[in-house]
Design a protein around this nucleic acid. Structure first.
Lengths: 354, 354
DNA sequence: GCGCATTCTGAAACCGCTTTCACATGACCC
DNA sequence: GGGTCATGTGAAAGCGGTTTCAGAATGCGC
């Protein structure tokens, strides 16, 4: 089996380098096998310069005969490019960001980049640590999903690396920003409730530290205003994007005896909490109260009843972010259209009963 | 020419990577600043050998005066260790694995290792690709969460790298396996339903390609057997762990007019689907039908009604996997106790009505 | 005071690849 | 037929560390 060095694992050699011998093939070995210099091999590998066809073929054949895989670490050191992109997300275990991460992963995989995922936990300090780590790891670029960092810091980061950032608009050299219109989404949702005939519409706000949360609230207010529905401040209640805060919000309203026929929660998770509170009080969705969320998380489809919500193209956001990063890396300036919201009507909304 | 001429860029005025901010400070600069050789700095950095206190202090002071951060890429090349660990998960956007990933991230962060997350999409081929990629990236070890790879491949992988694998028991050198007793968990859940008085208990099975799914089914059967409840094969219906399959399963049973008072779904997601089917048929949980899931996903707490389920210590699993990996890296043989299941009783279960 | 074991330390050789530089080669032009 | 150029190619110098190796300094026993 092992007797024929250099021949035995020719075909399948790529997939399983070598199980036993584990002697990694280097560019030098390839060079020697092909009768050229390492420089030439490198040039072929990177397409850096023209190489005579004869040699090119010799090298290519040697490469897959030996099952050579360039060592990314060495490449990173020598070339300054690591072919890896840092991705700062806020949470690894959030259904929301997960979809975006997957989108990023797919896009990068196609072109041989590797994403380095790391989570900032919605914490500015933590996020700064993440950025430092990624920089230390010499990533070629950084994608920040809904970051907490200051615009200024982003810009200074962008002096060294291309940066793609979502959740805000930021015009700067070497930066691409991807934004989703939370305002518009919230407006649509609210408008829909109004059109159904609702007038007393609760808004459960998100964490005010989030830009998104504020925008969504603005959208809610704008829609009411536009339709001439008076805003009852008592119906605008605080939340922090967690299920529990949604539950507490509704409990609070109910215990105060507030009247309302619909609830618009600034995200799905709070909508779930709200739904539970209503359930506990034997209030039926949508017969007694209509409910709308925001994000269109996967569980929303199978919520009881299935939740009407504003779709966030999270996966697509990931795809776009990755694409934009690749463009930046190629020196192009990405053109990014703002993503539009889409209201997904399911079964948690209906005209008010009375 | 910033602050101290002749210190910052004296050695190499060649690379001007940084536009404005910080220039990368190298070990050589530290060495010069401290009046020692690079070797000595390296030794202090790694604790490789004893160094005179005077020099040690000089170096340490130079290090943080200059804000030196060792370049992991160079370290990886020279030392052969990249301080990064590959983590193969099945899905990035699954609430289930997310918690485990977070556990891993936390544990590694403490000790300066960086996890490299990559998803295999429950696909053996894809997973093989992931493993190749990680090996090419020269990770120091690999953690596989519920992998599809053959035991044999794991072992051969382990000849080069320490491997931690969850979801199976595997005794091999340089491998640590972490297992959770799916059997016991399913047994507990079923037993609980029986104790409540249920006799006609539906089991919605998971993807038979999963080891876990089979074990859970065995647990279900064992519990029925142990309590002398006859197994009605018509009540054991196939599923694939998705919400939709849970829904279809229950729709099927209902349309066939099958009688049952409880449902045990092999995971929470299928339980959600089942719940929706019941809702559509105006069947109340738990009054008409009791429902139990498996995994204790976060949405289960806020399901309507909150779902009784078997808790999977997913986060803890991540923590343990990371810890085990660190032990392997230190040449210790990790002792791993199998994690025990815990039934979380919430509101989706009750004694049968009649 | 001498030989020898210990402990520190720096020079230099890598790690595997990219990139510069200089040197052919041959094509092209007048 | 001797420049001028493009084009291909290899030698060698890094990239920023780690590690080997050998020499210097110190300590110790007798």
């Amino acid at each position: 089996m092992e007797s024929r060095p250099g021949k035995s694992q020719s075909i399948s050699g790529k997939l399983e380098i070598d199980a036993q011998g584990q002697m990694p093939v280097t560019i030098e070995m390839v060079a020697k096998a092909a009768g050229v210099s390492p420089s030439t091999v490198s040039r072929i590998l990177n397409g850096t310069a023209g190489v005579a066809d004869v040699k090119r073929q010799a090298v290519n054949s040697a490469i897959d005969r030996l099952g050579f895989i360039p060592n990314p670490v060495a490449r990173g050191l020598a070339g300054g490019r690591t072919l890896s992109i840092g991705v700062v997300t806020q949470s690894l275990d959030s259904p929301f960001y997960g979809a975006a991460l997957r989108g990023i992963e797919i896009e990068f995989q196609k072109v041989g980049y590797t994403p380095l995922f790391i989570s900032g936990q919605w914490n500015q300090l933590e996020e700064a640590r993440c950025l430092d780590l990624l920089r230390a790891r010499r990533v070629d670029g950084i994608i920040i999903l809904d970051g907490r960092v200051d615009d200024a810091d982003v810009c200074s980061l962008a002096r060294n690396l291309p940066v793609v950032i979502t959740g805000r608009s930021l015009q700067a050299p070497n930066v691409a920003s991807l934004h989703f219109s939370n305002f518009e989404g919230a407006e649509q949702a609210t408008q829909y409730l109004i059109e159904l005939g609702h007038r007393r519409i609760v808004f459960i706000a998100g964490d005010p530290a989030h830009q998104d949360a504020l925008e969504r609230q603005r959208g809610y207010r704008a829609a009411l205003l536009a339709r001439g529905v008076a805003i009852d401040e008592a119906l605008v209640v605080p939340g922090n994007f967690s299920e529990e805060s949604g539950l507490r919000a509704v409990e609070g309203l109910l215990s105060q005896g507030k009247k309302f026929s619909a609830i618009f929660a600034a995200n799905d998770q709070m909508a779930f909490g709200a739904a539970l509170a209503l359930y506990r009080h034997a209030l039926h969705i949508p017969d007694d109260v209509s409910l709308i969320g925001f994000d269109d998380l996967q569980p929303s489809v199978y919520a009881i009843p299935p939740l009407t919500t504003v779709h966030q193209p999270s996966h697509e956001m990931g795809t776009l972010a990755a694409t934009a990063m690749l463009q930046l890396l190629h020196g192009e300036r990405p053109v990014l259209s703002m993503l539009s919201p889409r209201l997904i009507v399911r079964e948690s909304t209906a005209a008010p009963s009375r």
